[in-house]
């Protein structure tokens, strides 16, 4: 079985983002970019499944401008066997519906038994792509996964999902789509020898035209703004003062 993993290049987790003065977006100049943390978990899970002998190949896919190749190299250094870069450098954004259609076209061609994605990207926080591609493929979905157990004989994946108020367990027929939550695993670091090895692994380039997917957008960003700031609070010196404030000033207890 082949596993496909979708990975996104985003502003690094540790960067404090700043809104541009013209409100057109957030400042992207000279900002450190990295693989989306949820996508690292997705790739790690695919690698562990392959290492357990339940899959033969892990294919990493990323979409966007030329720099996505750097992110794919990181994925190859972590252990992916090969990569596909869907080139898209137009100013027009790729929304999750477009990404889902591109992934579907790749899957129709590659025929993996499992597609693993992060549950959301930490830039737009959409949490949509996995569910959408599962819908387009008419595959079952296990979103927000915290545990995945494959049964090779029955061709199923048993997935623990983090839902409001607890854990839900589903059994999915393969092929299936899984989106990863934070507790699924701890992604590995790429070692230096593997980083060197990754340089010779193949990255195939395709365009949306090659895949016969028309990129059309039904969404516009009107403006991006700073969230309202909370007014500065006060530091109190004792528990008595705190109880007094909560009772008589804020009136919440």
């Amino acid at each position: 079985m082949k596993i496909m993993v979708a990975i996104k290049r985003v502003v690094d987790y540790a960067v404090k983002v700043r809104v541009k003065p013209d409100k057109s977006g957030v400042e992207m100049k000279n900002v450190k970019m990295s693989m989306n943390p949820f996508c690292e978990i997705a790739l790690e899970e695919a690698l562990r499944i392959r290492e357990a002998g339940l899959a033969s190949e892990v294919v990493a896919v990323s979409m966007g401008p030329a720099q996505c190749v750097d992110t794919l190299r990181t994925g190859l250094a972590m252990g992916a066997d090969r990569a596909i870069h869907v080139e898209w450098s137009s100013a027009e954004r790729l929304y999750p519906l477009n990404v889902a259609k591109l992934l579907k076209a790749l899957i129709d061609d590659e025929k993996p038994g499992l597609l693993i994605l992060g549950k959301q990207a930490i830039d737009d926080d959409c949490n949509q792509t996995g569910q959408m591609v599962a819908g387009l493929l008419n595959w079952p979905q296990g979103t927000f996964a915290s545990k995945v157990v494959l049964d090779k004989e029955k061709q199923t994946a048993t997935v623990d999902r983090e839902v409001d108020g607890g854990i839900e367990t589903l059994c999915l027929d393969l092929p299936a789509v899984i989106t990863t939550d934070l507790r699924l695993n701890q992604p590995r670091y790429a070692t230096l020898p593997n980083i060197m090895k990754a340089k010779s692994k193949p990255i195939k380039k395709v365009t949306p035209e090659d895949l016969n997917v028309q990129i059309r957008s039904d969404m516009e960003v009107v403006e991006v703004s700073e969230p309202p700031k909370r007014k500065a609070g006060v530091i109190l010196s004792s528990v008595d003062e705190l109880i007094d404030k909560l009772k008589n000033e804020a009136r919440v207890i």
Binding site: V11, K16, V17, V19, V26, I122, D123, D124, D125, S217, D218, M219, E220, V221, V222, E223, V224, S225, E226, P227
Partner: peptide, 17 residues
Amino acid sequence: RPIYAGNALCKVKYTGE
């Protein structure tokens, strides 16, 4: 809607069907 973990707010317009 909030983006970047609520560090920015994004106003979007839906223009589709």
